[in-house]
Each structure stands twice: as C-alpha cells, then as structure tokens.
C-alpha cells in the first residue's frame, strides 16, 4: 500500500486575516515496508501533513493516493482507508476514554464491525506487540503511568491492523529510557511487516531508525533522501532550525580534517567502527 502525494497545498482558515499556508505544493511517495522519517521544526506543517494520510483532511489543491485509491474522491470508503493507515497523534494518551485498557484498545476494531472473537484476538495481539502485561487488560487506563498510557493508545491503533502506521512525535515527553524503549518498540512493529512513517524533530532519532527522510520547512519539502544524503546539508539544516546527529557532526569534522570517512557513516556504530579501524593509520596523503 504505497502512499503517493502530489502538489498538496493546505491553507489554514482561508479568507480570514489569520489565513496561513501550512503546506505548499508537497510531493512525496512512501513505498511498502519503508521506515520513513518526516522531520521539521515546530510549525513546519508535519502534523497537518499526516492528517492527509488517512483522509481526515481532503486534499483540495493536490491529490493523495493510498494504494491507488484517491482520498480526495467523494466515493472513497474512508473507513477502509483508516483501516489501512493507522494514525497515532502526538500525545495519544489524551485520547483514552474507556473504563478498561481492553475496552479502549477494542474501540477501533469494534468500529470496524468485526466479530467479538476477532476483536478479542486483536486486543491480545496488540497488547503483546506494544509490550503491555496481560494483567493490565482489566485496569482503568487512567491509572497507568504516562508511558504505559501511550502504549495503550498505540495498541488501540495497532488493533485496527494497519499496513501503514503513522506516528506523530511518538517519543515526545518521555524520559531517555522511555524514549529508547518507545523507538525500539516502533522498530519491532516495523520488523513485523508494517510500513512506518515517523514524524519527529529529533535528527538523532530519525537518523538512527529511518530508511528515508523528508525534511519539511515552512510547509515545503526542503530535502529528501536517505539520511546520509540529507545530513550532507549540515549548515543548511541549521539554517532551518534543525541539527544533524552528533555522530554525523563528528564524521564531518573528521572528513574536513582529512580523514577518509565514508559519506554514509552517520550512525554511532559506523562512525565508531571507522575510527577503531583507522586509528593510527594517519590522514589522506600524509
């Protein structure tokens, strides 16, 4: 189920003095099985963009296709689309409402009109996927800690069994350990065969996990490509309020100092590996 977006423009409150262009002529494509990062500073249009991915907003100038289905068309079955594309918003724990964890996770599958046994199966499976202990199923979601609540919310979306999972700042507001766990969890979900789109403003996070990045600035795609291709634009990224990962910075300084460190070394392991291998070998031409 690839996502294809062409010339998408979003105008906020058109016709009023508060009119603003949140997205401007966005073109992007997401292929099956990818781990995509969408990155940009606050107000760059990231969150607006993802609400187009499952038809919460209808593209007026521009088109959005998911698996060949035009989301702008009036005949499109949006429930079917929402089943394919799962959307986890920022701070998803604030959307919990049911009496028990189990019931909250079952909300999505119930809306899909699935038989009770299938709902039950999906709830158990989703809880397992996000690493929630089965003993919590009958608890009130409001009694859980912040990180656990977020897992419940993500499980609620996973229970729809989406082929594409879109997450808006899934690690926002978590402590470093919780952050790491959350990102590893997303990686596990990716490995189970789900296409992932992760919105973030942390270059370190997207650099570590994503195959391909889209950098948004003022509602436009400023850069795109594999992390290594994007991180080359270090200073330009700084200018639009973003930073490159610490390891990419180190690699660049070594490169500038005359070491032959490959361009695609930006992850901690790669840079560290290069340094260990080349210690004592000296610089280019030296």
């Amino acid at each position: 189920m690839p996502i294809e977006i062409k010339h998408l423009t979003h105008v906020y409150m058109p016709g009023s003095p508060f009119e603003a262009r949140a997205l401007n002529d966005i073109c992007l494509d997401i292929r099956d099985g990818e781990f995509i990062g969408i990155i940009g500073h606050t107000g760059s249009g990231k969150s607006t963009l993802i609400s187009y991915f499952n038809g919460l907003e209808r593209a007026k100038p521009g088109t959005v296709f998911v698996g060949g289905v035009d989301l702008g068309s009036k005949d499109t079955d949006l429930i079917a689309v929402r089943r394919t594309v799962g959307l986890v918003f920022q701070y998803p724990e604030y959307q919990l409402f049911e009496e028990t964890v189990e019931k909250d996770i079952a909300f999505g599958p119930t809306n899909l009109g699935l038989p009770p046994e299938e709902i039950e199966r999906r709830v158990v499976h989703a809880m397992q996927l996000v690493g929630l202990d089965p003993s919590r199923a009958k608890k009130s979601p409001f009694d859980l800690s912040g990180g656990q609540k977020r897992r419940v919310a993500i499980a609620g979306v996973l229970a729809m069994d989406p082929q594409i999972l879109v997450l808006d700042e899934p690690a926002a507001g978590l402590d470093p350990a919780g952050r790491h766990e959350m990102l590893e969890l997303i990686r596990d979900i990716h490995e189970s065969g789900v296409t992932i789109v992760m919105v973030s403003h942390s270059m370190d996070d997207v650099g570590k996990y994503c195959d391909r990045l889209f950098v948004l600035s003022h509602g436009e795609v400023a850069y795109q490509g594999a992390p290594a291709e994007v991180f080359v634009h270090g200073e330009a990224l700084n200018a639009i309020g973003l930073d490159v990962p610490e390891c990419a910075k180190l690699a660049k300084r070594l490169r500038d100092a005359g070491f032959d460190i490959p361009m695609d070394a930006y992850r901690l392991e790669d840079v560290a590996g290069y340094i260990i291998d080349n210690i004592g070998k000296g610089r280019r031409g030296a």
Binding site: S51, N54, L56, I79, R82, R83, G86, L87, F89, P92, Y94, Q95, L96, F97, F107, G108, N111, L112, G156, V157, M160
Partner: peptide, 28 residues
Amino acid sequence: KAQKARGANFETGNIIQRARAMIPLLVP
C-alpha cells in the same frame, strides 16, 4: 481526529447513536 482515525463516526446515525458517539470525544 484521533477517534476518527480509529474508525469513530460522528456524522451519521440517529440521535441516540450520535449521542453515544460523543462519549469518546467528551471523556478525554
């Protein structure tokens, strides 16, 4: 938006169904 993404339906149905559909919105 978040509940719609989970398949909630706020727009159709009779008055009782619509009132029930508000619960996932009002509680949070």
